[in-house]
Design a protein around this nucleic acid. Structure first.
Length: 460
RNA sequence: GUGGUUGUAGCUCAGCUGGUUAGAGCGCUGGAUUGUGGUUCCAGAGGUCGCCGGUUCGAACCCGGUCUUCCACCCCA
């Protein structure tokens, strides 16, 4: 090892403990996904360059990891692009593949490619890593996992209700309380822009509005003005900044503001219905609330928009998000297929759970029974016992060689093994094995042939 | 992509205005205890001070570059 090895910026190794904890989270998510009727699919870690580029906006294109062509990758480069250092023209000549940036676009591609084999409505889930060439921060990595569930071919608001329930059940099963599911509607946003006379500035308007709780009203108004939204429009948007009170009060204010917009009225109507029915169904761990400043993923969402905020006690951005897109597969040539979906951010949920101390201690235990090795003859008997216990589904192991007993115990202690079995020459002569309960510090013996009594005594 | 920040033993961190042999706690190894971990006591090992270059008689410390960490933007899970 000439140099210290390292891993790329924004990537991580995962220890056994971390993998156990990550599996605990994905296990809970997977279980609920399946319980709600979703089926798993997987897609390649890299896609064709053209499949991904242009799907996430200009910012997204910048953050996509491009894969350099193999072989003589300069062969196809055209001279003028090269001499002008024109990156936009050059990149597609150097790269024909790119790393998956999210799970939604590959899913849309999948649906289009397999449309004749799929039963619609198609409910799929997908738990895979994605890559972004972003600058890392806490809870922001260049390689991270998304856990997505989407439905295509299912119009109407039943799916929206289902997704709120799904979010809630996952967080409830993880013991993660206090998360907030924020809800908004693309048509509400475009309706507002329309009625205040900023319909042509929808994106600038919503991007600025999104920052309201972060930078405050004055700065939001300043940003809107700076983006070319007229003072009159900003003045007419005033009710938005003053929205307070109960959900029904907010909905009332929205309805009033949006009276002149058909799309806006439709959006408010859907939100009202979703909120009312969610109220009726009830939630276990999360709360659901209307948030008109929520403006994510404008590039493709066309209906409901979701974002999940971590509990307030934890400083972490969103731990999930999603929404409805009426025509996502349209970009791949399949029109009029409606989709709606949500995503869980595994890596961020991990950080939140760690900070709140929500991981069960039993996750750190990889062995139930551990046998001390006293030598060849004793080890043969121990191995026989180990195999019997394993056949009963008990995680059992034998120390590989007969080093000092103290050292073997220390190893068992570090591994947090609850039961240590001793088969030394004393036990061998008596035809017994001794079990030490490491937590209680008590020991008892069983006849060798009564191993199943011991197995029965272990908690399932 | 912009601005800032961090890096010293396996881990968490000290290290004065630049001064000779870089420290602590925890962990690790051995012993007290050759069939008993988690407590205690004793001893020991372990460091190109992120990396490259510069200033200086002399650099962990100052300067430049680079990598990394974290933070604020941008954006987002």
């Amino acid at each position: 090892m000439a140099q210290k090895p390292s891993i790329p910026k924004g990537t991580r190794d995962f220890s056994p403990q971390e993998v156990a904890r990550r599996n605990y989270i994905t296990g809970a998510i997977r279980e609920q996904f399946e319980r709600f009727g979703f089926q798993p699919i997987e897609t390649p870690s890299f896609e064709n360059y053209d499949t991904l580029m242009g799907k996430y906006g200009e910012e997204g294109d910048r953050l996509i990891f491009k894969i350099l062509n193999s072989g003589d990758y300069l062969k196809k480069v055209d001279e003028s692009a090269w001499s002008e250092k024109d990156v936009v023209r050059l990149t597609p000549q150097l790269s024909e593949k790119a790393l998956r940036y999210d799970l939604t676009v590959p899913f849309a591609r999948y649906v289009v490619m397999h449309q004749n084999e799929i039963e619609f409505p198609f409910k799929r889930y997908q738990i895979q890593p994605v890559w972004r060439a972003d600058r890392p921060q806490r809870g922001r990595f260049r390689e991270f996992y998304q856990c997505d569930a989407d439905v295509v071919g299912a119009p109407g608001i039943v799916q929206e209700l289902e997704f709120i329930q799904l979010y809630d059940r996952v967080f409830a099963s993880l013991g993660l309380e206090g998360v907030t599911i924020k809800l908004n509607h693309r048509k509400v946003l475009s309706g507002i822009a329309e009625v205040i006379g900023a319909g042509d500035r929808l994106t600038d308007f919503t991007v600025a509005l999104d920052k309201l709780d972060k930078i405050g009203r004055d700065k939001v108004e300043a940003e809107m003005a700076q983006k070319g939204i007229s003072p009159d429009s900003i003045r007419r948007a005033a009710p938005l900044f003053e929205m307070q009170g109960s959900t029904s009060e907010q909905l009332g204010a929205l309805k009033k503001l949006l009276a002149g917009s058909a799309a806006g009225r439709e959006g408010v109507g859907e939100l009202e219905e979703i909120l009312a029915q969610t109220e009726a169904l009830g939630l276990r761990a999360a709360t659901c609330q209307l948030d008109v400043t929520l403006a994510r993923g404008l590039n493709y969402y066309t209906g409901t928009i979701f974002e999940v905020a971590a509990p307030e006690a934890v400083n972490m951005g969103s731990i999930g998000g999603g929404g409805r897109y009426d025509d996502l597969t349209g970009i791949f040539g399949l029109n009029d297929v409606s989709g709606v979906g949500i995503s869980f951010g595994l890596d961020r949920i991990y950080l939140v759970m760690e900070e709140l101390g929500l991981f069960p201690e039993t996750l750190d235990r990889a062995l139930d029974v551990f046998c001390i090795n006293f030598g060849e003859e004793e080890a043969r008997e121990a191995l026989k016992l180990v195999m019997r216990l394993r056949s009963r589904g008990i995680r059992a192991d034998l120390y590989p060689n007969d080093t000092k007993v103290g050292k073997q115990f220390k190893y068992a202690d570090k591994r947090e093994v609850p039961y240590v079995v001793l088969i030394g020459d004393e036990e061998l002569r008596a035809g017994q094995f001794t079990v030490r309960d490491m937590r209680k510090g008590e020991q008892r013996s069983y006849p060798l042939e009564a191993w199943s009594d011991f197995a029965d005594s272990l908690e399932p």
